[in-house]
Simulated scan of single mutants.
Amino acid sequence: MTWDDALKIYDDITEACNGFERKGKTMIYTSSNGYMFTLLNKDAEIGLRLPKDEATKFMEQYSTGHYYSYGAKMKDYVLVPESLWENKALMVNYFEQSFAYVNTLRPK
C-alpha cells in the first residue's frame, strides 16, 4: 500500500472518531493529554497505543507485534495489520480506546 493510500484510510478513521483529530503534516499522529496515541509512520504503518494487557491481547489476537517508527520501538504501541484497516468500525473503536487510555495517564 502506498503512503498516500494509508494516509487516506488513517484520515477516514480519525474523521469518524469523537473528541480528537489528526495532527501533523509529515509525521501523522493523534494526541491528547500530552501523549501521542496513534501514528502513521513513513513506511505507511499504523501504530496504536494501548495499555500493556490490551496490547498483549491485540498482538495475540491479530498475530502482530510492536510498532516501530523511524527504527525505534514505540513503547506501548502495537502494529495494526493492514487487514484491519478496511474494518472502519473496528478501527474507530480501537482509536477511541487508545484516546480513552491516554486520557487516564497523568497529563504531561
Score class of each variant (00 low, 15 high):
Gly24Gln: 05
Lys25Thr: 12
Lys25Val: 03
Lys25Tyr: 02
Thr26Phe: 01
Thr26Ala: 09
Thr26Tyr: 03
Thr26Gln: 07
Met27Tyr: 08
Ile28Val: 05
Ile28Leu: 00
Ile28Met: 02
Ile28Glu: 00
Tyr29Phe: 15
Tyr29Val: 02
Thr30Arg: 01
Ser31Gln: 14
Ser32Thr: 09
Ser32Gln: 02
Asn33Trp: 05
Gly34Ser: 05
Gly34Gln: 11
Gly34Phe: 03
Tyr35Pro: 05
Phe37Gly: 08
Phe37Leu: 06
Phe37Cys: 07
Phe37Lys: 03
Phe37Asn: 11
Leu39Ile: 13
Leu39His: 12
Leu39Arg: 11
Leu40Ala: 00
Leu40Gln: 01
Lys42Asp: 12
Lys42Ser: 14
Asp43Glu: 15
Asp43Met: 06
Asp43Phe: 01
Glu45Arg: 11
Glu45Pro: 00
Ile46Leu: 13
Gly47Asn: 08
Gly47Pro: 10
Leu48Pro: 06
Leu48Asp: 04
Leu48Ser: 06
Arg49Glu: 04
Arg49Gly: 04
Arg49Asp: 07
Arg49Lys: 15
Arg49Met: 13
Arg49Val: 03
Arg49Cys: 09
Leu50Glu: 06
Pro51Arg: 08
Lys52Ile: 13
Lys52Gln: 14
Lys52His: 12
Lys52Asn: 11
Asp53Cys: 07
Asp53Gln: 14
Asp53Met: 09
Glu54Ala: 14
Glu54Met: 08
Ala55Gly: 13
Ala55His: 05
Ala55Phe: 02
Ala55Val: 02
Thr56Pro: 01
Thr56Ser: 14
Thr56Phe: 11
Phe58Arg: 03
Phe58Lys: 04
Phe58Thr: 06
Met59Gln: 12
Met59Arg: 15
Met59Asp: 03
Gln61Pro: 01
Gln61Leu: 11
Gln61Glu: 15
Tyr62Trp: 10
Tyr62Phe: 14
Tyr62Ala: 04
Ser63Arg: 12
Ser63Tyr: 10
Ser63Phe: 08
Ser63Lys: 14
Ser63Cys: 08
Thr64Glu: 10
His66Glu: 13
His66Lys: 14
His66Asp: 13
His66Gly: 12
Tyr67Val: 00
Tyr67Leu: 00
Tyr67Arg: 01
Tyr68Gln: 13
Ser69Glu: 00
Ser69His: 00
Ser69Trp: 00
Ser69Met: 01
Ser69Thr: 05
Ser69Asn: 02
Ala72Tyr: 09
Ala72Asp: 11
Lys73Thr: 06
Lys73Glu: 15
Met74Pro: 03
Met74Thr: 12
